[in-house]
């Protein structure tokens, strides 16, 4: 049976998420390597725009207009469409390892009994079975995992696969929604919290405040540097648990995984659970008073010093170099 690899896309603010383009690129690469075919799926209240975007990456895109997604959680609806496509011959499903993506994957496993290769950074073939590489046990090991059967599900972490468009754009196939097999929770209200509006995963620069920042007010220096560097503010579990920043900012095993061009850590000790979420960053700079802080093991530049002196001095230095 030739591989038919499905990429499940996610829509945010009317556009395809970056991780969706990475999932689409992986699905296409897997299909091409196996002499098979790739396709994409967009399920949204208004799928046309993101489906057209996705068709830049895949030869065929199924676009399902599901009006319910305006005020229901997506997983049951998306899982229903994936289940239908599995019935039409899809062999492998690639889904972003996001909040919704994990719900969709879990729902599918519960409904179909298919195997799940979770949190893949990359995937390739060994014979007719995909092999995924994942970081496990809070960063203590990297594993290669595979499926025993002929089909299954992969959840993909951000940043492991570079998104690239196909040479020839594909066709979009509109569809009516099918009926979900499980009830969907209703969304009564969407609440935006201050400081949580930009995506950590998409940021080129992430400036992170750890326990050493000491207070919500202390985050002013973190925010100042993030602003100067054109980056966004991230946090460690300690600073989130202390209530200084919202959970949406947390980087690490139980938060976001980031791979920015620059990670700048201020007062971040670098516990394993945090490092698993940032050690893929291209350049890591850390400022910490403690010379034994474990973040030194992954930092390209490790500054031993008081962040409340070094960070303002760095802000001044950047301003001076830019001519005031």
């Amino acid at each position: 049976m030739p591989a038919l690899v499905l990429a499940v896309a996610e829509v945010a603010d009317g556009s395809l998420t970056r991780l969706s383009t990475e999932a689409a690129t992986l699905a296409r690469a897997l299909a091409e390597a196996a002499g098979g075919t790739a396709l994409g799926l967009v399920v949204d209240a208004a799928p046309a725009g993101p489906a057209a975007e996705l068709a830049g990456y895949l030869p065929r895109v199924v676009a399902v207009t599901a009006a319910e997604l305006a005020d229901q959680v997506p997983a049951p609806h998306v899982a229903a469409e994936v289940a239908r496509l599995l019935g039409e011959g899809v062999t492998h499903v690639v889904i972003g390892a996001t909040t919704d993506g994990r719900d969709i994957a879990g729902t599918l496993v519960g409904l179909t009994g298919l195997g799940l290769l979770a949190n893949a950074d990359t995937a390739s073939w060994d014979g007719d079975a995909p092999v995924t590489r994942s970081v496990v046990l809070g960063g203590r090991a990297v594993t290669e995992s595979t499926l025993s059967g002929g089909s299954g599900i992969i959840t993909l972490r951000p940043g492991g696969v570079g998104a690239s468009e196909a040479a020839v754009p594909g066709a979009v196939e509109p569809r009516e929604p099918s009926t979900p097999a499980v009830p969907a929770a209703v969304v009564l209200e969407r609440v935006a919290e201050a400081g949580a509006e930009v995506s950590l995963e998409d940021a080129r620069v992430v400036v992170v405040g750890g326990r050493g920042v000491g207070s919500p007010e202390g985050f002013a220096v973190v925010e100042e540097l993030a602003g100067l560097l054109g980056g966004v503010v991230g946090a460690t579990r300690a600073s989130v648990d202390a209530g200084w920043v919202p959970y949406a900012r947390q980087i690490g095993q139980t938060g976001r995984v980031v791979k920015p061009a620059l990670y700048l850590g201020l007062g971040v000790s670098g516990a394993m659970q945090h490092r698993v979420g940032m050690q893929g960053s291209e350049v890591i700079v850390a400022v910490n008073r403690d010379q034994d802080a474990p973040i030194a093991e992954v930092a390209d530049l490790f500054v031993i010093g008081d962040l409340f002196q070094v960070a303002p001095a760095l802000a001044t230095e950047i301003r001076v170099r830019r001519g005031g």
């Binding site: 945010a12 959680v73 909040t99 929770a185 209703v186 969304v187 009564l188 209200e189 969407r190 609440v191 935006a192 919290e193 949580a196 509006e197 995506s199 919202p246 959970y247 949406a248």
Partner: peptide
């Protein structure tokens, strides 16, 4: 929890 805050579901 959502990327922007939270949804009441």
């Amino acid at each position: 929890l959502s990327a922007k805050g939270y949804d009441l579901v």
